[in-house]
Design a protein around this nucleic acid. Structure first.
Length: 499
RNA sequence: GGCCCCAUCGUCUAGCGGCCUAGGACACCACCCUCUCAAGGUGGCGGCACGGGUUCGAAUCCCGUUGGGGCUGCCA
C-alpha cells in the first residue's frame, strides 16, 4: 500500500522495493498511479492475460490509481470484433473493472504525429529491404540473423515497399528499471535498427505502445516477461520522443504448460471462458491466477480479492515461470463450492441446471429434485459443470447403463437372486431413509445381501448400477427416496430382465 | 547463432546470512471413516541442479558450469 504521501500528487522520491536491512532495488514510486492492461483482440482472453490484468488492477486499486483497458487492435489481419466483446465479457466475469477504456485503432492520428516527430528528429531512415534480402545478406556474411543497417546512409525517401526504421545507438547500453527483475541491461549494439512505421503507413506495435503510454501518462508498465526483450526499443523511442520520466516496469513471469513452454492459445486450453463454462468460479480463478507469480506472506494460499488488495506488493512478485496446474485449480474450486451455503450453491449452479449450459431440455429439470439432492451433490463436485451429471438419473425417464459398470456390478453370481428378493421386499417397505434413525431401505437391502453372502459393497453396487446407470454417484438411499418406489422398482425389474 | 531471463519436494511456493533436521498447498501412497464416489481425519513419500568462492556460519551473497525458457516479424 502506498503511504499517505500519495496525496501530494507529485512525483515521489525513490523508495525501497523491499524492507530489507540489506537494501534492495530502488524504483520510483510515482503517483498518481496509472496502469494499463493492453490485450489484442486476436482471440479469447487467456488466463495469462487475466493474471496480468489482475496484477495491474490490484496495483491500481490499492493506490487509488487508474486502471486503463487498452484494446490494441491495430492488426487488421488478425483482429476480430467479436474478440473485443469477448475480452470485455471476460473482464467483467472476473470482476476486473476499468476506469478508462481505449481502442488503439482510434488513435492512429496520434501515432502518425509521433512518427513525424521521430522523422524530424533525424533518428530514423527509410528502408526498402525485403525480408528475403535481409536474410540473404545475413546468410552471406555468416553473421547472426537480423537487419544489418543496409539503408542507414542511403538517404532513401518514403515510397512503396519502404518502411521507416529507427536508428539505434552503436554503443552504450539501455537499462530497464524493473520492479521484479532488477535492472536488465541491454547493449545498444545488440539492438537492430527496427521498423517503426510499416510501408503501409501504419505504425508498429512498439511505437504505438510508447505513444499511448506516454499520452495516457502510464506510470507502471506491468506485463508479461515476453515483452522484456523489446523494452529497450520502447525506452529508446520513449527518450527519442522526449517522454520525460520513464515508466517503471514489472515484467511478470510467464505461465507455462506441463512441458515448461509458454502457454499458447493454439496448443493449450487457456481461454478464460473455457474455465467459466466448465464451472470454475471467478473468485477461484482470480485467487489461483494471483498465485501464478505471487504469494502472500506466510503459508496462506486462499484469499479473497480484498485480502489480496491488502497484501499484494508488486515487488514480491516472483521471477521464475509457473506451471498452470489445473489439478490445483480444481482442488481450490471444489473447496470453495463446499464452503458455500446450499442456497448459494443452488443459485450458482443454475446455468448448468436451467440455463444455456444445461445438458437437457428445460422441461426435464425439477427444482424439488435438485433441492433434495443439493447438499449431497455439493460435496461431490469440483466444478459446476459436473452438477447435472450427478442427478440426471433422477430427472430422466430412461437411465443409460454404463456397460463396464454393468459387467462388474450386476453380472456376478448372486445378483439375480438379490434383485428377486429385493423386488419383493422393497415392494412394501417404508420408503424412507433417515440416516441414524429409520433406515428401512438400507436395512432390507443389506440383510438380503448378507443372506446371500454378499458384502455391503457388492450388495449395493448392482442396485446402484440398475437405478443410476453408474457405479459411482450420490448416496444411494437418499437418491432412491427422491426417485420414488415405482421408478426404483421399475428399474430394478428392467435390470433383472436384462440379466 | 545473438541478446535477455530463470533455477527450493512431481507441481506452486515459504525462505531476505544463524530461527532449516528446509515449512505449507496441490498431486501421490497408506490407514481410519464408509452403501459407491467424494468429503473428512491420521500418517507417509519427496527438494535447495552442479562446481568454485565470500563468511565463524550459505537454500539465502558472488563467479562459473549445466539445464530450462523468452525474444530475435513491415504481429501484438
Amino acid at each position: 500500500m502506498l503511504p499517505d504521501d500519495r496525496q501530494s500528487r507529485i512525483v515521489l522520491r525513490c523508495g525501497f522495493a523491499r524492507d530489507r536491512p540489506s537494501g534492495g532495488l530502488r524504483y520510483p514510486r510515482r503517483v498518481p498511479v496509472r496502469v494499463r492492461f493492453a490485450p489484442s483482440p486476436t482471440g479469447f482472453l487467456h488466463v495469462g492475460g487475466v493474471r496480468t490484468a489482475l496484477y495491474n488492477w490490484v496495483f491500481a486499486r490499492q493506490s487509488n490509481g487508474v486502471f486503463v483497458l487498452r484494446i490494441e487492435d491495430t492488426d487488421d489481419e488478425r483482429n476480430r470484433e467479436e474478440w473485443v466483446t469477448a475480452i470485455d465479457e471476460s473482464m467483467r466475469w472476473v470482476g476486473l473493472d476499468w476506469d478508462e477504456r481505449h481502442r488503439q485503432s482510434d488513435r492512429a492520428e496520434l501515432h502518425a504525429t509521433a512518427a513525424e516527430r521521430l522523422i524530424a528528429s533525424g533518428r530514423t531512415y527509410w528502408c526498402d529491404c525485403t525480408r528475403d534480402a535481409v536474410d540473404a545478406r545475413a546468410k552471406e556474411r555468416g553473421g547472426p540473423p537480423g537487419y544489418d543497417g543496409h539503408c542507414r546512409e542511403l538517404d532513401k525517401g518514403p515510397g512503396p515497399h519502404t518502411a521507416l526504421r529507427f536508428r539505434t545507438p552503436d554503443d552504450g547500453e539501455t537499462v530497464v528499471v524493473d520492479v521484479v527483475r532488477g535492472e536488465p541491461t541491454f547493449p545498444n549494439a545488440s539492438i537492430e535498427d527496427f521498423i517503426v512505421v510499416r510501408a503501409t503507413g501504419k505504425v508498429m506495435f512498439v511505437l504505438a505502445n510508447v505513444v499511448d503510454d506516454m499520452d495516457m501518462a502510464i506510470t507502471h508498465v506491468i506485463r508479461g516477461e515476453e515483452h522484456l526483450p523489446t523494452t529497450p526499443k520502447y525506452l529508446l523511442l520513449w527518450d527519442a520522443l522526449g517522454g520525460g520520466e520513464r515508466p517503471v516496469f514489472a515484467h511478470l513471469p510467464v505461465i507455462v504448460n506441463e512441458k515448461r513452454q509458454k502457454l499458447s492459445k493454439r496448443r493449450d486450453p487457456v481461454a478464460l471462458e473455457l474455465y467459466r463454462d466448465e464451472g470454475y468460479l471467478p473468485e477461484v480463478m482470480l485467487n489461483f491466477l494471483a498465485l501464478c507469480g505471487w504469494s502472500p506472506p506466510g503459508d496462506q494460499e486462499r484469499f479473497t480479492i480484498d485480502e489480496m488488495l491488502a497484501l499484494f506488493r508488486l515487488e514480491d512478485v516472483g521471477k521464475s515461470p509457473g506451471f498452470f496446474d489445473v489439478a490445483k485449480l480444481r482442488a481450490f474450486n471444489g473447496d470453495t463450492i463446499r464452503a458455500m451455503s446450499v442456497e448459494e450453491f443452488t443459485d450458482r449452479a443454475q446455468p448448468w441446471l436451467t440455463g444455456a449450459l444445461a445438458p437437457w431440455p428445460a422441461d426435464v429439470y425439477d427444482a424439488d429434485v435438485f433441492a433434495a439432492m443439493a447438499p449431497l451433490v455439493q460435496e461431490r463436485v469440483a466444478v459446476l459443470s459436473e452438477v447435472p451429471g450427478m442427478i440426471d438419473f433422477l430427472l430422466r425417464d430412461e437411465v443409460t447403463i454404463d456397460d463396464g459398470d454393468w459387467e462388474k456390478a450386476v453380472k456376478p453370481d448372486g445378483v439375480a437372486q438379490l434383485l428377486d428378493e429385493l423386488l419383493v421386499a422393497w415392494a412394501d417397505v417404508t420408503w424412507e431413509h433417515v440416516p441414524d434413525e429409520r433406515e428401512p431401505l438400507k436395512d432390507t437391502l443389506f440383510s438380503i445381501g448378507e443372506g446371500l453372502g454378499l458384502n455391503k459393497k457388492r450388495t449395493q453396487a448392482p442396485v446402484r448400477v440398475a437405478v443410476t446407470g453408474r457405479s459411482v454417484g450420490p448416496p444411494l438411499f437418499e437418491s432412491l427416496v427422491v426417485l420414488g418406489r415405482e421408478r426404483t422398482l421399475e428399474r430394478l425389474r428392467a435390470a433383472r430382465a436384462r440379466l
